[in-house]
Design a protein around this nucleic acid. Structure first.
Length: 116
DNA sequence: AAATTGACCTGTC
DNA sequence: AGACAGGCCAATT
């Protein structure tokens, strides 16, 4: 079981995360797990959340609203300026959101592993 | 300073 | 097929 740890150069890892997030095309979404896999962190999905959480207090302007969990739920909505911000942004890009969930998630899913 | 929490996911039972 | 356990690790308490 290749369990890879990247305890050193964490900042660099964050940068790589941000780089991926920045490349998510408008109108598409991806997941924490997909990003983690793409970076070789098989069980590191949580770390992505940590990185994004950090990013919001930095100057990084990231389309963080395009990152949802693997079921298409907007689990991060509470960390935005307002609880509706995330859903609003997505709708603005043409992604249907009902409640806390992206409809037809598989249709909008953008997987960095395949697409990058 | 130790323990808990959390923007999560994938095995295994 | 549904529940559980284990892994990741920074931030917060």
């Amino acid at each position: 079981m290749p369990r890879r740890r990247i305890t050193s150069d964490l900042e660099e890892l964050f940068e790589r995360i941000y780089a991926v997030v920045r490349q998510i095309p408008p109108g598409r979404v991806t997941t924490y797990g997909a990003i983690a896999r793409y970076l070789g962190l098989m069980h590191g999905a949580r770390l992505i959340g940590i990185a994004l959480n950090r990013a919001k207090s930095e100057i990084h302007q990231l389309p963080a609203h395009r990152v949802v969990n693997r079921l298409g739920y907007l689990t991060g909505k509470n960390h935005f300026p307002t609880p509706n911000y995330m859903a609003n942004q997505l709708r603005k890009e043409g992604i249907p959101v009902e409640g806390d969930r992206v409809l037809h998630f598989d249709r909008y899913f953008w997987d960095p592993v395949k697409e990058l």
